[in-house]
């Protein structure tokens, strides 16, 4: 067990170090997120009531789209430089490695986006307490995106046409998360209790976090040949 924790810390440390040394890649999804946020008021019009109604949906879809930029590179660099092969040859279980990668991806890309979604409050006049609920759903939802995205990214690690197909694989799978997320927001907007859809969303995230590492490890094994 102590051994596994040790591995875990090493893997995460390496991922964070790499991200710090390649700042430009790490910032790209954030910039994309902010840009899309600007596009909405420009196209819909600056009417604050309408914008406030759209804001939670914009937050969710924007999060997913921004992550689609980062997801294709989840494993591809390590695949190209051979590091992935070494990890799969080592004694650590591959699905454990995938789990650490999901978590480091979540720390690096998802968490900043969830925090960044606070921009919805000034830009789209979303009430702050609704934003707080939205941020909780995004917190859980982004874990789910990272888990399912790891499978899609692992399946496509060796193919050159990555990102378009990745969207096709990932987006249909995310519909349950969107449904539960929007149910939470809708209940919160009418000041109804929203715990049950929130818990369902959390259950879905935990379920995906459990299954996805196994599937992704299998997918990478196929790609390594």
């Amino acid at each position: 067990m102590a051994n596994l924790v040790n591995y875990y810390i090493q893997f995460i440390k390496r991922d964070l170090q790499l991200a710090v040394r390649q700042k430009h890649e790490f910032v790209l999804p954030l910039l994309f997120f902010v840009l899309i946020l600007i596009l909405f008021p420009v196209t819909v019009g600056p009417e604050s009531g309408l914008l406030a109604r759209l804001a939670p949906a914009v937050g969710w879809i924007n999060l997913i789209l921004s992550l689609l930029i980062a997801l294709p590179r989840m494993f591809s660099e390590d695949y190209e430089n051979g590091w992935l092969e070494q990890v799969f040859l080592a004694a650590v279980s591959p699905s454990f490695f995938i789990l650490t990668r999901i978590l480091s991806f979540w720390l690096l890309y998802c968490l900043p986006l969830v925090i960044c979604s606070v921009l919805l409050v000034p830009f789209m006049s979303l009430p702050f307490d609704i934003w707080w609920v939205l941020a909780q759903t995004l917190f859980l939802g982004s874990l789910l995106v990272a888990a399912l995205g790891s499978v899609a990214s692992a399946l496509l690690v060796a193919s050159r046409k990555g990102s378009g197909v990745l969207a096709l694989l990932l987006l249909p799978m995310l519909i349950p998360a969107l449904i539960f997320g929007s149910a939470v927001i809708e209940a919160a907007q009418q000041s109804l209790p929203y715990l049950s859809p929130m818990l369902l969303l959390a259950a879905l995230a935990v379920f995906c976090l459990t299954i996805a590492p196994v599937a992704a490890a299998q997918a990478i094994k196929i790609n390594l040949g």
């Binding site: 496509l156 197909v165 790609n223």
Partner: peptide
């Protein structure tokens, strides 16, 4: 369905593509 098919066609190696499609 389209995802399964698109995944198969995004590989150069047909065998790997077929296996990936099976996982999906």
């Amino acid at each position: 369905y389209l995802g399964v098919f698109a995944l198969f066609y995004s590989f150069d190696d047909k065998r790997a593509g077929a296996k990936a499609a099976c996982i999906l």
